[in-house]
Amino acid sequence: MPHIYNEFTIEIATTDFESTKNAVAGGADRIELCANLGEGGTTQSYGVIKTCREKFDVSIYPIIRVRGGDFLYTDEEFDCMLADAINCKNLDCDGVVVGFLKANGEIDTERTARIVESVYPLGVTFHRAFDRCKDPREALEQIIGAGCERILTSGQQLTAPEGAPLIRELNEQAAGRIIIMPGSGVRTNNIKALADSTGCTQFHSSLREMVASKMKFNTPAFANDGESIRYSGIDPAAVAAFKKALA
């Protein structure tokens, strides 16, 4: 049976206030609010999270991550992330996005559960740290047990279309106990096929593109500097087209 369009949920990863505004304008159902997407996403500033929460009537899930790199954290790093997660609860966000692994590749269920308990009743998404775990099928059960509501995954491949067979298996194993949300490489030209092949109904994408700077002046030494003449942003029309591709 084909999916009904309004049964789908589109989550857009945004990097600042402007990209969030554009994603919401394009029809995003939920925002994963990050900084530094080039490093896989780190926690945005208190001010950005607060302003987005105040301005937008859409689900906002800030990522809770102190740095790029792996997902094995020191006690001090975890303390920082716990404090950030509680800040998000106090700001009335809808949920947070986390991911913790042990050195042996297993899910750090203790830390995951502690975040879930600390931010309750907010929702918790376990992010693509899942794609670096040793046994995804066992990890699925552990993440359910820890109380998360959703797993963001590319099926342990670089992109979700490549990992579609495992994503389908995980979705079948989940059997409605947790949401499996494909992400990474999910685009307008493949989201419908991914929905059909996996049976998933929630999808994640950043839809990032380079936006020209509106600066009229630039010092000569930086005339051709990429960071001075453009920055990463989101086009509302691209978000709308992404959603429409599921219709």
Rank of each mutant, 00 (worst) to 15 (best):
N36L: 13
T14L: 07
A23F: 05
I31Y: 00
A25I: 01
I31H: 06
Q44Y: 00
S19A: 12
D29Q: 08
G26Q: 02
C34Y: 06
G41A: 10
S19F: 13
E39V: 03
V24S: 02
S19H: 09
A25E: 12
T14P: 08
Q44C: 13
I31W: 06
A28E: 02
G26W: 02
E18Q: 15
I10C: 12
T14D: 03
A35T: 08
T20W: 05
F17H: 13
T15V: 13
F8L: 14
G27T: 06
E39W: 04
L37P: 12
T15L: 11
N22S: 10
A23Y: 09
L37H: 11
V24P: 01
E18W: 02
S19Q: 08
A23S: 11
I12E: 06
G40A: 10
L37S: 09
L33Q: 01
Q44L: 10
E32F: 11
T14I: 08
G27F: 11
T42R: 03
I12A: 12
K21S: 14
G26L: 03
Q44P: 14
I10V: 15
F8I: 10
C34M: 07
T9C: 14
I31P: 11
D16A: 04
G38A: 15
G40P: 08
D16G: 12
A13T: 07
F8T: 10
G41E: 04
A25H: 01
L37Y: 10
N22V: 01
S19R: 03
T43C: 11
G38L: 13
G40Y: 08
G38D: 14
A35E: 13
V24L: 00
G27I: 00
A35K: 13
G38M: 12
T20I: 01
G41C: 13
T15C: 14
L33Y: 03
T42P: 09
D29H: 15
T15F: 10
I31D: 01
G38T: 13
E11M: 03
A28L: 01
G27K: 05
G41R: 07
D29P: 08
T14R: 10
L33R: 03
I12L: 14
D29N: 15
L37T: 03
G27S: 07
Q44K: 00
C34R: 02
C34A: 05
N36R: 14
T42F: 02
T20D: 06
I10T: 14
A25T: 07
A13P: 04
D29G: 13
T20N: 04
R30F: 03
D16Q: 03
S19T: 15
L37C: 11
A35V: 02
R30M: 10
L37A: 11
I12V: 15
K21P: 00
N22G: 02
T42W: 10
G27L: 04
T43R: 00
G40M: 04
E18G: 02
D29E: 05
V24R: 04
T15S: 14
E11A: 07
F8Y: 14
G40Q: 00
I10G: 00
Q44E: 13
K21D: 02
D29M: 07
F17M: 07
T14C: 15
